[in-house]
Amino acid sequence: MTTAVLGQDTRSVGRGRPGVHSTLTRGSSVGLGLAMIWFSLLVLIPLAAIVVTAGQHGWSGYVDTLKNPQTWAAIRLTVTQSLLVTLVNVVMGTLIAWVLVRDRFWGRGILDVLIDIPFAMPTIVAGLVLLGLYGPKSPLGINVANQRTSVTLALAFVTLPFIVRTVQPVLAELDTDVEEAAASLGAKRATILRRLVLPSLVPAIAAGAALSFARAISEYGSLVLLSGMLPYKTEVVSVRVYSFVEGGDQTAAAALATIMLAVALFVIVALDIIQRTVARRG
């Protein structure tokens, strides 16, 4: 399962003439209109509602919500843990992609399927499953339940596929001629990796890292059972939002949600920029 993020320019092939503003026909205009209505009802208006609701108590109300000690602790925890996990993924994800693409051994297919499991598994089950091995009844004797490490563990689990799946196709398509040319010019393996292979992978890694970070910040389900959702200790932003919702404080929930939305938008823009850069490089 590959996430086709990079290099897929949605401009039409061969028909993108300069200066043409719209090539829509009557039928396709109607189609676009209907699609936009659905998209607005489903996505745009609800997200706008969050931004509007967040500002209901004005700017000072907004800032106060965020400065609340418990909330602020949640924000700090979520951001630091997400960054940590993203870094781990940058390293491990790239290594895993390398092994999947350039190595052959029995069981590689199983490895491939395992990578996709966190993506398809219900998040609540992810938490349950990690609890089984790393919780109170752990056969390994490792119990991270209700501790900060549990957050790292859960986030690492759910973000596992992202960098792997963005790097894998790029690595597979790399022109090995270039590496051979470098070798014939006397470059050592380490040099080739460092100066040729890695730089070509940077956009893919960056895209995967952006997705991984966004996913980590948003994670909810896997933390419900595993982390205990303890305030100041293991409570993340999404859990805090949920408790605001349950408590009926929609404004506070929305205020906190805008932060997550800002991160999401930032990631989307970053991905778009990366994609354009890659497309330009050809």
Binding site: P46, R215, S218, Y220, A257, I268
Partner: peptide, 16 residues
Amino acid sequence: LPMAVSPVVIGLALLL
């Protein structure tokens, strides 16, 4: 966008 947004935020948005 849905790839990057938290499910909790999505639920809240629809709720609002």
